[in-house]
Amino acid sequence: MLPFSDPEAVAHYVDGPVRQVPGFYGLQQMTRLLLAERIQDDAHVLVLGAGGGLELKAFAETEAGWRFCGVDPSVEMLGLAKRTLGPLASRVDFYEGTIDSAPFGPFDGATCLLTLHFLAENERRRTLSEVHRRLKLGAPFVVAHHSFPQDVEEKAKWLARYAAFAVASGVPIANAERAIAAISERLPTLSPEQDEALLREAGFADVALFYTAFTFRGWVAYKA
């Protein structure tokens, strides 16, 4: 998981996802609804990759009884999350680190949005297993991140579409080109088939795709 520790990057983080992730606010709303299908009004939810606080705020504003455990490796991003949440931060226990820093719960549900694409396959597999370990039986887990075909030609096509969306949303062309170069060269992205297989290997059942947006995919799965 890459730490977002550059002060300038952290300061402008909140403006980024909506311009780079198609349907960003819809993704948050769908995630909340998928959790709410299975968990109670007083649920305790694990949010992995909670830095920035955007999904925490979306969940907390609508679900007044939920409590949260927010985990992120960047202390700067956790600070931003606290500022983003304001008074709602009182309902969140923050932990600096990876999944290993999270309490064992067990939690009623969990999310990991726009985070797992930073992890190499083996670490991603281990992280998913550790999330599974911290959930109650039948608990929902919602995950979304970059996941697209890894064939050279297909990869280039989908990254170009990602860049086109970012430019259409106001990102300077040079920045979008740097972003797809970084994704292509440095992010250990997997295909959707590989991502689904890892969820099943970690012990999750009923894995279902609910979100597809250019290079991004999102799934809901349940602890078996």
Rank of each mutant, 00 (worst) to 15 (best):
M1Y: 10
L2V: 15
P7Q: 10
P7S: 07
A9G: 05
H12D: 15
D15I: 08
G16A: 13
G16N: 13
P17K: 04
R19S: 13
P22Y: 11
F24Y: 15
F24V: 15
Y25K: 12
G26R: 14
L27W: 11
Q29I: 15
M30Y: 10
L33N: 13
L35M: 12
E37I: 13
R38M: 09
I39S: 03
I39P: 01
Q40P: 06
D41E: 15
D41Y: 04
H44P: 03
L46Y: 05
V47I: 13
V47R: 00
L48V: 12
L48G: 01
G51S: 06
G51F: 05
G53Q: 10
L54H: 09
A60F: 10
E61H: 02
T62Y: 07
T62A: 15
E63C: 05
G65L: 15
R67S: 11
G70Q: 15
G70V: 15
D72P: 01
M77G: 00
G79W: 05
L80Y: 00
A81G: 09
T84D: 06
P87T: 08
P87D: 11
L88W: 04
A89L: 08
S90I: 14
R91V: 12
F94H: 08
E96R: 02
E96A: 08
G97A: 04
T98N: 02
I99E: 08
D100S: 02
S101L: 10
P103W: 08
F104G: 11
P106F: 01
D108E: 13
G109Y: 10
L113H: 09
T115M: 08
T115W: 00
L116Y: 03
H117S: 11
L119I: 13
L119C: 09
E123D: 14
E123V: 10
E123S: 08
R125G: 00
R126C: 05
R126V: 12
S129E: 12
E130W: 00
H132R: 03
R133V: 02
R134T: 14
R134N: 12
L135T: 10
K136N: 14
L137I: 12
A139E: 06
F141W: 03
H146T: 04
H146Y: 10
H146G: 01
S147M: 07
P149S: 03
Q150P: 04
V152L: 09
K155F: 07
K157W: 10
A160F: 03
A160N: 09
F165H: 13
A166L: 06
A166C: 06
S169D: 06
S169A: 13
G170L: 12
V171G: 01
P172H: 02
A174T: 15
E177R: 07
E177A: 05
E177C: 04
R178L: 14
A181I: 10
I183E: 06
S184I: 01
L187N: 13
T189L: 08
S191F: 04
P192A: 01
E193Q: 11
Q194G: 01
E196N: 01
A197K: 02
L198S: 02
E201N: 02
A205V: 14
A205C: 09
D206I: 02
V207R: 02
A208P: 07
Y211R: 08
A213F: 14
F214H: 12
F214T: 15
F216Y: 15
R217P: 09
G218A: 07
W219F: 14
W219C: 06
Y222V: 12
A224Q: 13
A224M: 10
